[in-house]
Amino acid sequence: MVDDAASDDAGVDPEPAAGGVEPAEDDGPTTGNSEAIARAFADGPAYIPYLAVGDPDYESSLEYVEALERGGADLIELGLPFSEPIAEGPTIQGAVVRALEGGMTPDRFFEFVEELDVDVPLVCMTYYNLIYQWGEASGPRPFVERAAEAGLEGFVVPDLPAEEADPLRDACDEFGLDLVFIVAPTTEGDRLDRIMSRVSGYVYVQARLGTTGAQDDVSDRTAASLDRLREYDVPKAVGFGISAGEHAERIVAAGADGIIVGSALVDIVAEGAEADRSAETVADRLEALSRELVEGADRGYRARSPTADSR
């Protein structure tokens, strides 16, 4: 689904492909900057788990993220906690509080990424002020440069709409990282075009309005959102509310190229912290839920394309 052959780079910058996916435009390459992210979507639906880094402490958090890979993660979103997480529901707010109280900072976050022993691509999810403030020079460039050095492949920034994103977009292109945008159920028309002209890597399809949080049911607005996005040639990963294998199955069957799961995993971490469980027990549970989600996604994929091989 990702056109790896696209190399029609019209920009002055010869090396990284500029981000941006335009429908029926001749100047837009259709792949992102990161080959690793493209590969995560290349062989069936991508399972994309999220955890807040440093929740509830640095060492446990390392084990938890590594458990996600064992559970079948194709790509992992690592949350760098910000004090005012306006897009997050109570579950991830709780994770942010625990991680900040555990001493997580942007510098520790980069060390964490460097220490992490996983082979899947890592995407940093955080709020713009942390990106903007980091380093001596003003603007997002120093943070992006450091992120690239640490081995991150891209960003999701929930409080950065396309209109304000150009400095970060350019820095990502300079250092070969992807910039993922969130598309809401209310996003359509010109707004959608504006976002899709700046997105790279994958697009984060928000399954319903509101904030993040696990739900018993997932919104049927997802199908409509996927329909609106059909013409854009970029992987579509659906998040917000997915907490069980059957959700994953239904969403992939509806056409999603990936599923993003955060709060359901963070709930396991929170419960472990509260009940004072060993990091090993919590890691095992994270791995088990991951497997359930991956299996669900694979069932959905087979339902959609009966001839497709399971991974």
Binding site: P161, E163, A184
Partner: peptide
């Protein structure tokens, strides 16, 4: 100034 808000709010802001 500017408009640094989640995408879900942008249509309402517009």
């Amino acid at each position: 100034g500017g408009q640094y808000v989640p995408e879900a709010l942008m249509p309402a802001i517009e």
